[in-house]
Design a protein around this nucleic acid. Sequence first.
DNA 1: CGATTCTGCGCAATCGATGGTGCAGAATTG
DNA 2: CAATTCTGCACCATCGATTGCGCAGAATCG
Lengths: 349, 349
Amino acid sequence: MAETKPQTIYDIARLAEASPSTVSAALNGNWKKRRIARATVERIQRIASEHGYSANQQARALRTAKSGLVGMILPQHDNRFFSSVGQCFSNEARARGGLPAIVSTRRERDQEVEAVRQLISYSVDALMLVGTTHPEELSAICRAENVPHVFVDQPCQGAPSVVTDNRGGARALAEILLQAAPDAGEADTVFLGGNADLPATSLRILGYQDALRSAGRQGRVIACGYRRAPTRDALTREYERRGRLPEVLLVNSIGCLEGVLEFLVTLPLDEVDQCQLGSFDFDPFGRLLRHPIPMVRQRADELIRVAYDHLDGGTWSRDSFDPIIVAPELILPDDDHFTRVNQPALPVG
Amino acid sequence: MAETKPQTIYDIARLAEASPSTVSAALNGNWKKRRIARATVERIQRIASEHGYSANQQARALRTAKSGLVGMILPQHDNRFFSSVGQCFSNEARARGGLPAIVSTRRERDQEVEAVRQLISYSVDALMLVGTTHPEELSAICRAENVPHVFVDQPCQGAPSVVTDNRGGARALAEILLQAAPDAGEADTVFLGGNADLPATSLRILGYQDALRSAGRQGRVIACGYRRAPTRDALTREYERRGRLPEVLLVNSIGCLEGVLEFLVTLPLDEVDQCQLGSFDFDPFGRLLRHPIPMVRQRADELIRVAYDHLDGGTWSRDSFDPIIVAPELILPDDDHFTRVNQPALPVG
DNA sequence: CGATTCTGCGCAATCGATGGTGCAGAATTG
DNA sequence: CAATTCTGCACCATCGATTGCGCAGAATCG
């Protein structure tokens, strides 16, 4: 027990009076092919477990070119959606005996490239690339090194991708809001937040427009980025210019929602009450507002599950690389599983 | 460019007309000791970078017993505090050229033990253990394998730990709330949430009591666990029993705060207005409530920075293992910037 | 000019696990 | 009983990078 230091296959071999190759075969399951006697196998396994032996993964990886490491590139950990993605990835990776290595790269190209290179230098068995800004470049690196990979949340030309149904989700959310404000005109119907150059936002805008069109109505788009403060300021300017809030306000992304609420709390309650608010992205606090708001929640679990199946199903080397689409959840205030008493009073507003 | 497949030190050696050992020396900086001519070094480096060579980390790790991997055990990714810890860890690890491997273990003993073993089998250079439930057991494993490690957010006997000043933070928060409700009696002064058996909660309770004592007042504690629904129910029962809300309510942890708000939104506004609410743990939505509430934010960045310094400063093998205490921030509703709690570090235990 | 000291670099062993190959001895067959 | 087939296992090369050691040839010294 004191000399637990040198725990190699050779130590076990000596203790079990067998050769290293026999020990190796006994411990990794292919002793059948190598015709090792069952008694020998059991003796070796017993000794190995008594001594808490576990194989040096570096050596194994060097020999077999399979490391057991699975890499993920993520914009950031500290974000509700991405942290949830990280959680699901960690679960899946470990369920399959792998070791997750998650690297956050802040949506910066250089960091993304460096992280991919670093992960590859560790011989990762596969790579999952979430919300990256330069998918094609990263995919080229992976392809050159022959590393299986899949993109999540952001599609990539010529590589497998799994993304949320941004368009469908936005459309469903917009329909809810439009129904609640049947008389809102174009000027009073607003999609707020996000970056229209990125696929996610542009698809959500399309979904919003789908809903408008099928209701025979019109609306506006203010794509002011993903950050809190600029969104707050954009809404403030809008309010000051028109003297009132929009009647329909579809907020794109959780950071933007915070910005919107920051402004709304400065207004009289009855003005806020006139505004049909919805959010594409989920935060539990959304249910705690004066009027709980409808939210679209991306299904991190499904995204990762599908992406992973894709990797070890080998589907990743198909002919066509059309993105796989995962439907998000629409979370409505009234299918809340907690029954609310009386008319809601409000922490917010 | 097409044949980027076999990128080993031998390939580079052939291209540079040198031997593998020379290439190795040239690329990892110790060519000075090995008396390699500067011209040779430059030729090798040029060729290596032209071909995008980077060393196989498994092979290097096998030889040197240093992997560059740094492991972290975390209860979960999808939590504001822990995801922030993960983010800081990832930043620090990569700044030092390491590869972060973060494993979430759901506060379950078996998962914690297995994860530590798994990480060790990858020859991690160091291990950071955050919010674990069985620190002593994990520390014993690390010690047996001679792996440097440090605990964060949860102290461990006989191992280095870095923790938030829970007592000081809770005291500062309680003082704010008590001042705002100078006449609240014992029955109307409540600390709600958490698990009194765990060090974090019990220290926060002590801090709350410190504040009470120095104000010559009394209060109660309801430690109903860390989860949302039980907290909501506990507050509901309290309200029904006494016919009103407490005048001072210090909520312990972010999940509990959600539970509290879930109940508060069912009450008339004026009742809610009577209650001085504060939260130990930060959520940006806390600033967006009808009355923005004071919150204590643990400084994930500091915790990790100190823990990391500890690891590579070698401080981790000192004589005494008193936890290192990091002061949290007190975030007040009326501040735009954050106030630092400046309490003397109190002994943990 | 022979002896010593540098310079510059290559040889080969090593880290630990794996798997192709082959060799004894036992069991079976003709 | 000799020939063949099976069993059970050990030997050894290998993965790629590192490093102790040592060997040529050039430079310097006496």
